[in-house]
Design a binder for these strands. Sequence first.
DNA 1: AATGAATGAGACTTCATTCAT
DNA 2: AATGAATGAAGTCTCATTCAT
Lengths: 189, 189, 189, 189
Amino acid sequence: MPDGTATKELIGRTALRLFIEKGITETTIRDITSSAGIAVGTLYRHYGSKDELAWELFAESYMTIGRELHGIRIKEATARSKLEAMIRHFCNIFDKDTAMFTYLFLSRHRHLQKLTPRMPNPYIEIRSVINEGIRRGEIPRQDPDVSASMVMGLIMQMIDSRLLGQRIKQSIASLADTTVAASLRVVEA
Amino acid sequence: MPDGTATKELIGRTALRLFIEKGITETTIRDITSSAGIAVGTLYRHYGSKDELAWELFAESYMTIGRELHGIRIKEATARSKLEAMIRHFCNIFDKDTAMFTYLFLSRHRHLQKLTPRMPNPYIEIRSVINEGIRRGEIPRQDPDVSASMVMGLIMQMIDSRLLGQRIKQSIASLADTTVAASLRVVEA
Amino acid sequence: MPDGTATKELIGRTALRLFIEKGITETTIRDITSSAGIAVGTLYRHYGSKDELAWELFAESYMTIGRELHGIRIKEATARSKLEAMIRHFCNIFDKDTAMFTYLFLSRHRHLQKLTPRMPNPYIEIRSVINEGIRRGEIPRQDPDVSASMVMGLIMQMIDSRLLGQRIKQSIASLADTTVAASLRVVEA
Amino acid sequence: MPDGTATKELIGRTALRLFIEKGITETTIRDITSSAGIAVGTLYRHYGSKDELAWELFAESYMTIGRELHGIRIKEATARSKLEAMIRHFCNIFDKDTAMFTYLFLSRHRHLQKLTPRMPNPYIEIRSVINEGIRRGEIPRQDPDVSASMVMGLIMQMIDSRLLGQRIKQSIASLADTTVAASLRVVEA
DNA sequence: AATGAATGAGACTTCATTCAT
DNA sequence: AATGAATGAAGTCTCATTCAT
């Protein structure tokens, strides 16, 4: 029963790789289909347009991470342990699905404005951790948006460094430790 | 009255604005020329191609900032004062020429690999500050590349927050204070 | 229970409607099958191609009308009564199966050259009426092709007016009277 | 001074010919440009799209004829002379620019709904002649819309006969005489 | 220096048709 | 008989670049 699901996944996987390698605009539909070994028309049976393909690839992963961070926030007890678990989770995802994570990182500016408040959202989860930490007296009073941004900045930079890959050769584990430590220092003053 | 220069500057200014608004690939030569009120052919008298225009716009500003940070590094006395002056310098540039800074931020991934080691380079300057700080015992022993990356991450995130402009409404001055403080905490442990 | 026939008719009916609404070229196979609630492959079991479908729909109705007009020509006695009966017959068909008639009207230029002399043909019937009328002295000597064309012109225009529907809101019955009268005046001089 | 006007006219002329020969939808952009001996991009410098090209070709001629009929209506004295002059004018246009007239005839259904009430309009002129004729007692009381439609029907059929060209070989002059006579009979009862 | 009409490769997308199930 | 995923040729349109004026 060739229900097409396998083909759709093949297309998604192939597109992801090419979008990362060359950029979304620079990747043509024919790049994707010939790389995937399918006909052009087949792509359009599964995705309405190139834009829709790019967006679906983004939104799916973005919301998945949002949901996972939400799970961590609920499960862990303290602000410290939540933040640490979240950052380590980012590292795990990066290790397990570098391509997906890289795509999220590189294409976020293109897609961010299409997100609706209802969608699961990693940034909101981090801010909530800080908010709750302040309320419980675990961390000093501070602007939760500024702090959440800075924590995100540290994580993003970790990825940036790996992607450009020129300057930092650390293992992802040691980067995790360093980033956790830095994040806690930034948040706890 | 070298009016060729004025035209070239007009083109550069116009292109910069459009590149930021729509992205480089999404901006057409005709977008630029009609916005600037000139003919298509005129653009090609001043820039060899669209790629060259995008690169020249990037490299010029990137190297200027590199030179300015170099000046700060030489002038200031301590690692602390150097880092603080550098971050405040970034804020000043952002205030004075937001468009240029935004363009650098958004297009860096496209251009970074074209940089040669000989070119003035903001990142190198920050790393040098940390390196020297360690050697003089002003800050603890640490991986200068990791630390420089994290400081850059904080600065980049500040810009990111302003550009997406959804979450942070702080004045750039107050962001400067916060970023300086966070950077020092990250570096000094 | 020959259910293949029912499906074929469903396809024909659906295609007819869409061909009228959007034009033949502008109607896609998928438009037809999804409108009819069947699979694409099913259409091709009943019609060899889209062109064949369009032609079959045309030819079937065109020849039916030709045969009916032939019946009228044989049954009625005078040129006057034949012409009147024929025009009223057109009006009846229009009322009973507007879709089919509209399709004939709109697609005739595309199909007319595929007609062979052997096929039943409404125009030939009208010309024969005029020819016979002249021979019997019922109507003045005149070019039967020109006159038949003009009578067809009046009928076609009646449909045209209804289809574009902007200018004439008369009931089809009252249009019949007027058209009959005008046709007789055109033919009888 | 190659201002491009010549090229635009060349494109229009070529497109008109092909639209008539093959139909609008069936004529491709490449058909037009290779027939005209120009590049694809050149067509798009002069016409925004294929639809716009088809419409511009239609509207221009349609309104010109509307304006010319208006001139006739004002210049001639009686309903009879006006109608006769108008029908002869149609014949003259057909002789002088058969291609344009043919195009108007074949593509009218596609374009008619884009006409606005403000545009010069041949049908309106014919109806006005009948309206005024009734008011002055030159022709009997009758529905001006129905009569105008029937006159248009006779004219259209004359073209139809020439285009399909199978049945009528009369010179356009003799068709004019016949059509004038028939029209007057239709209108004057 | 400036102009802008012309170029044509190449992008995205559609759609009639096939065929394994 | 019916299904619908897959095909790929062909369509429309864009756009960086050139060049005669």
